[in-house]
């Protein structure tokens, strides 16, 4: 399936791009992370500490064990600092 993957804040800076279209067979967010980390060192570094990352599935906060079936957009970012 095709997924739009979006990165924000230091995740975007470490990976070096704001978004990309990915063809994947990952079943869960965690599978997708494993796949991305295997790409190269910048991805590996960006996803080194999952406790410091958050994920949104189709613009709703989700968890790393969430299934990707039916999802079109996945975003990775650090804890939010609004207000």
């Amino acid at each position: 399936m095709k997924l739009e993957v979006i990165y924000f804040a230091w995740v975007r800076e470490r990976i070096g791009l704001p978004r990309e279209l990915i063809e994947t067979r990952a079943q869960t967010v965690a599978d997708l992370v494993t796949e991305l980390r295997a790409r190269d060192e910048s991805y590996d570094l960006a996803f080194a500490d999952l406790a410091s990352l958050r994920v949104a599935l189709d613009q709703e906060l989700g968890s790393f064990d969430a299934p990707l079936a039916g999802v079109r957009e996945v975003a990775f970012f650090p804890p939010m600092t609004g207000g």
């Binding site: 924000f8 804040a9 230091w10 949104a56 906060l61 975003a75 970012f77 650090p78 804890p79 939010m80 600092t81 609004g82 207000g83």
Partner: peptide, 26 residues
């Protein structure tokens, strides 16, 4: 609303100062 905006609205702040740029930590 303020409490939720702080940590549940997808904003990220970066401070630019004399020592460069730093992402504000939650």
């Amino acid at each position: 609303l303020m409490d939720y905006l702080k940590s549940r609205a997808p904003f990220w702040k970066k401070e630019l100062g004399p020592d460069g740029a730093t992402w504000v930590a939650a």
